[in-house]
């Protein structure tokens, strides 16, 4: 961070080259996330994408938003939102992940239950899910959209097509 300087008011002033370097890193990470998304990483597809997104966010927050040179309280504030959001995510996810197919007080189950048992369909048009009733053992499957174990007939990575 040698390109940094402070003005006479003690505020941090980033140099042009420094800002350009951050921009270059952000664009590089954008292409990186595009590249990793095109690869078949199995369960890790989404985590890797999110990790890169967090990396980009960190760059923006620290250097474009000057948190690196900010006060301690601003540093705390910039992560407070994440912490409280984790509360929201954690409890709702624990709930939907542990909802029994049949609750003691009735047959209500979460709406996607019937469809979750079908991962990637082997036929292009997905219809007639009625027979797939919720199976308890399927509920604890991770939320990856294409867990390799389920689909032996899956094609090799990269053979999908975005444009035909």
């Amino acid at each position: 961070m040698g390109h940094a300087a402070s003005d006479e008011h003690g505020l941090h002033v980033s140099s042009v080259e420094f800002n350009l370097r951050i921009l270059a890193s952000l664009i590089f990470l954008t292409f990186l996330t595009y590249a990793t998304a095109s690869m078949d990483l199995g369960y890790f597809d989404t985590p890797v994408a999110l990790l890169i997104a967090f990396g980009k966010t960190t760059l923006v927050i620290l250097y474009f938003m000057h948190v690196r040179w900010g006060s301690d309280y601003v540093k705390i504030l910039s992560v407070t939102g994440f912490v409280f959001l984790i509360f929201l995510f954690a409890f709702t996810l624990v709930d939907v992940g542990s909802r029994a197919p049949e609750q003691p007080w009735g047959k209500y189950t979460w709406p996607g239950a019937a469809h979750r048992t079908t991962m990637i369909p082997s036929v292009p048009v997905v219809t007639g899910h009625g027979e797939h009733d919720a199976h308890g053992d399927e509920h604890h499957a991770p939320s990856s959209t294409h867990s390799p174990g389920h689909h032996e007939d899956k094609e090799a990575p990269g053979s999908h097509a975005q444009g035909h």
Binding site: S38, D45, T46, P124, V125, H146, E155, H160, A161
Partner: peptide, 10 residues
Amino acid sequence: LLGLNGEPVI
């Protein structure tokens, strides 16, 4: 990016 790597669904 979510759908980039899966088989085309439909």
